[in-house]
Measured scan of single mutants.
Amino acid sequence: TTYKLIANGKTLKGETTTEAVDAETAERVFKEYAKKNGVDGEWTYDDATKTFTVTE
């Protein structure tokens, strides 16, 4: 399944996707990606669109 991340960070803005077996796995991947890019904010997830959003 393809999951999408929308990053609304102070230093990183944009979108990326990952293939994962479930939302929990995708969330781990995206949180690691955000951490590597210095983004720390509020996370939301929309199951209907398989989209995570992080906003600083």
Rank of each mutant, 00 (worst) to 15 (best):
T11D: 11
T49A: 07
N8I: 15
T11I: 12
T55F: 09
T2Y: 08
D22P: 01
T17I: 09
K31V: 06
T2Q: 10
T25K: 06
T25A: 14
T11F: 14
R28P: 02
E27D: 04
W43R: 00
A26C: 01
T18D: 02
K31I: 06
K4F: 12
E27C: 12
E27I: 08
D47W: 07
E56S: 07
A7N: 05
V39R: 02
Y3C: 02
G41I: 02
E32H: 07
A34F: 05
K36M: 13
A20M: 03
T17S: 10
T55M: 08
K35G: 06
K13G: 07
Y45R: 02
A7E: 04
A7H: 13
T55R: 06
K13M: 12
K36L: 13
G41T: 02
T53D: 02
A23V: 12
A34N: 02
F30H: 01
L12G: 08
A23P: 11
E56V: 10
G38S: 06
V29I: 15
F52S: 00
T55P: 01
W43Q: 00
T49H: 06
E42N: 11
K35W: 11
T16H: 14
G14W: 15
K31F: 05
K36Y: 09
T49Y: 04
R28W: 08
K4S: 05
E42L: 13
T2E: 09
K35Q: 12
T17E: 09
D46W: 03
K31R: 15
I6P: 01
L5E: 01
W43N: 00
G9H: 10
T17N: 06
I6D: 03
E42Y: 13
T51Y: 02
D40W: 14
E56H: 07
A34Y: 04
V29L: 13
D46M: 04
E15Y: 13
Y3D: 01
T1G: 08
V21A: 14
T17K: 08
Y3R: 00
A7F: 15
T18V: 14
E27Q: 09
L12R: 03
Y3K: 01
T2N: 05
T18S: 04
T25R: 06
T51N: 02
T53W: 10
F52G: 00
D40S: 12
D22E: 04
A20N: 03
K35M: 13
V39D: 02
Y33H: 05
T18I: 15
A48L: 13
E27V: 05
K35N: 10
D40V: 14
L5P: 01
T25M: 11
A34W: 08
V54I: 10
G9N: 06
A48F: 10
T16I: 15
K4M: 07
E32T: 07
R28C: 08
D47E: 14
D46Y: 04
A20S: 06
T2R: 10
E27H: 12
A20Y: 03
F30M: 02
V39K: 02
V54R: 01
T16A: 11
Y45M: 01
D46N: 10
Y45D: 00
T17Y: 15
T51M: 04
A20W: 02
F30N: 00
A26W: 01
R28Y: 07
A34M: 10
E32W: 06
T53A: 05
V54D: 01
L12N: 07
N8C: 13
T16C: 12
T2W: 11
E15N: 06
N8R: 10
V39C: 13
D46K: 03
T16S: 10
G14K: 10
N37V: 11
A23T: 09
W43I: 03
K35L: 14
F52K: 00
N8M: 14
D47T: 09
E27S: 08
R28H: 09
E15T: 13
A48M: 11
Y3I: 01
D40E: 14
E56A: 08
L5W: 05
Y3S: 01
D46T: 05
K31Q: 07
E24W: 09
D46Q: 04
L12W: 15
E24A: 13
G41C: 03
E42K: 12
K13Q: 14
F52Q: 00
E15A: 08
E19C: 13
G38L: 05
Y45Q: 00
D22T: 05
T53I: 08
T17R: 09
Y33F: 12
K10R: 13
G9S: 13
K10V: 14
T53Q: 06
D47C: 08
D22V: 03
T1D: 10
V29A: 08
T55L: 07
F52L: 01
V39L: 15
F52Y: 05
L5K: 00
E19I: 15
Y3V: 01
K35C: 10
E27N: 05
T16W: 15
L12Q: 07
G38W: 04
V29N: 06
V21K: 14
A48K: 14
L12T: 07
G14D: 08
D47I: 08
A23S: 10
F52W: 06
D40I: 14
A34C: 14
A23L: 10
T11S: 11
T16M: 14
K35H: 11
G38N: 10
V54A: 02
V21L: 12
A34E: 01
I6H: 05
D47M: 08
V21T: 13
G9I: 10
Y3N: 01
T1I: 15
N8D: 09
K35P: 01
V54S: 01
W43F: 04
G9K: 04
K36A: 14
E24M: 12
K35T: 11
K36N: 14
V39P: 02
A26G: 01
Y45N: 00
E32D: 11
T49V: 05
K35Y: 11
A7W: 15
E56R: 04
E42S: 10
T18P: 02
D46E: 07
E42V: 15
E24I: 13
T16E: 06
K31M: 07
T11Q: 09
K10N: 12
G14Y: 15
T25F: 06
T55V: 09
T1Q: 13
V21E: 12
T18Q: 05
